[in-house]
Design a protein around this nucleic acid. Structure first.
Lengths: 193, 193
DNA sequence: CGCATGCATTGAACTAGGACAAGAAATGAA
DNA sequence: TTCATTTCTTGTCCTAGTTCAATGCATGCG
């Protein structure tokens, strides 16, 4: 049950059995059916979620009512609205929705603090996870600015080979920052090669 | 001399005099003249820099040789290539260049580790800084995808009021993900209102 | 089973922004 | 001060991607 998340958290920092036990004891398990909105704009994001199974999307809604998908999180990924923090008391701008039936391990801000108090080395592990997310997001920003729709789509397929089978195409379009219609045209053009 | 950086690092975590002294003793001061490239593609990024004074840009170069500016860092901001880490041995894809005469405090990976060993609470401060950067980058990604050139430029002016005076316009264009010529047209259109 | 809703495709008309080129203005070095 | 280099502006033409239908396809639900 805990091996997945323990492997994930131990990727850059080594923990002993005792530390992992503390870690596991603070996790809250939760199953959530597909198409459930776990976080809405203006709510406080009260969790940090590790995906054991399933797929979720995290998105903003822009001034014209359009959704922009910031992240797909599948097995072994973390999701939450990090712009929320207990340090700044701002409500969230993001939505988090399950796209499939999901299972999670959840941290609340409180249990996370408890973890850091009981086993400070986790501070380090989460710092490095944060750093990895930042690197990924910066790469994505670079791609969004500098690449054509076709290039972005091909790179998406390479990077997330299973995801194009699992989620609707208009979600992928929204993630790539192009219209659903144009993605369809890109795909037929690619298929003809 | 140290008050700026001490204020910055204490923003979300409180340190005692002793901890700050350890922190300060590990900082390396460095002045760098304008137009100096501090980091190039394929080099290892061996520093994390706090800007005491001046302005730098951090950018990628895309497949067609175009620069894409990821970040302007001015007084009290941090710059480095975080995709580099001592945990993954990958060379950098980014360039960091001073746009003005600059003064920095630098950490090398080694002194940063030394800091964490001597005063583990800094692990927390850097985790939160990382979290803030991620939130900013995600917002920027959202803007890049969902807003028009005009909207992005106006928001830039609001967000970085001094920067438009300090850096060349084609750099701002590159940051916004639009061509320098089009930014010029946007500006004349705005001026006519 | 049939129906309704959501999803993907295709086409036609449109537009935001890009590429290129040429000139004006500003900056800076000798 | 002059010349050179870089930066900014403006115009013309061009294209990648959008918007708005319309149509066919799935898929889930009573």
């Amino acid at each position: 049950m805990y091996s997945q998340i323990n492997k994930n958290i131990s990727r850059y920092v080594t923990f002993d059995a005792n530390e992992l036990e503390v870690f596991n004891s603070l996790l809250e398990y939760k199953a959530v059916p597909k198409k459930t909105i776990m976080l809405q704009e203006d709510e406080m994001c009260s969790f940090e979620a590790f995906v054991i199974k399933g797929c979720v999307r995290k998105y903003y809604i822009d001034a014209n009512g359009f959704e922009v998908i910031l992240q797909f999180a599948i097995e072994n990924a973390w999701v939450s609205d990090i712009s929320f923090s207990i340090y700044e008391d701002k409500p969230s701008r993001v939505y988090i929705e399950t796209l499939e039936d999901c299972e999670f391990f959840l941290f609340s801000p409180e249990t996370k603090e408890e973890l850091f108090t009981k086993a400070p080395k986790f501070e380090r592990a989460f710092r490095i996870l944060m750093q990895r997310s930042l690197a990924v997001t910066q790469d994505r920003l670079f791609n969004t600015i500098s690449k054509s729709a076709t290039e972005k789509y091909l790179e998406f397929l390479e990077h997330y080979p299973t995801l194009s089978q699992r989620v609707a195409q208009h979600y992928i379009a929204s993630y790539l920052g192009i219209s659903a219609e144009f993605l369809s045209k890109v795909r037929t053009k690619i298929a003809k090669l």
